[in-house]
């Protein structure tokens, strides 16, 4: 019970799962992630054109989860002892949530530059889900 993401609902968003494909609003020029529904800047509907971002940006909020992870990430938390989660303002403009990887999450702070990289996210019903995470820019 609880939250559940079906395989079709994951697969239909693969461009955004792997590369953070955004929507650019043809009305106001604002960026929305994911590129569906109403523009987060002006609420216009049906105006989002897909944009391929560079996958780089700046951390605007950071946390390190040390307990209470939901079942899909419980094994990861056990293995790592902590899960770093950031909100990143992509260089194109949209804000996206992402998990930190390839680093000590306690060393990452607001204002740091990060880049996206495809990693294993979690496994559900025997199917591994892949998607983008963030790591510090070299």
């Amino acid at each position: 019970m609880g939250a559940y993401l079906s395989v079709p609902s994951w697969v239909r968003n693969l461009d955004s799962r792997y590369r953070f494909v955004l929507g650019e609003c043809t009305e106001c020029g604002g960026y929305t992630f994911p590129p569906e529904g109403a523009c987060v800047e002006c609420n216009a509907v049906g105006t989002l054109e897909p944009v391929e971002p560079a996958g780089t940006g700046e951390v605007v909020a950071q946390t390190v989860i040390e307990s209470g992870a939901p079942p899909e990430f419980a094994a990861l938390l056990d293995a790592q002892g902590a899960i770093g989660v950031v909100l990143v303002e992509l260089d194109e403009g949209a804000r996206v949530p992402g998990m930190l990887t390839d680093c000590d999450p306690r060393e990452v702070a607001r204002g740091d530059r990060v880049e996206s990289v495809v990693r294993r996210i979690y496994e559900q019903e025997g199917i591994v889900r892949y998607g983008a995470k963030f790591r510090p820019e070299p």
Partner: peptide, 12 residues
């Protein structure tokens, strides 16, 4: 679909 799948929790 996105926030939770980034590994965050409600406290997060």
């Amino acid at each position: 679909e996105w926030e939770r799948m980034a590994g965050t929790t409600f406290a997060g």
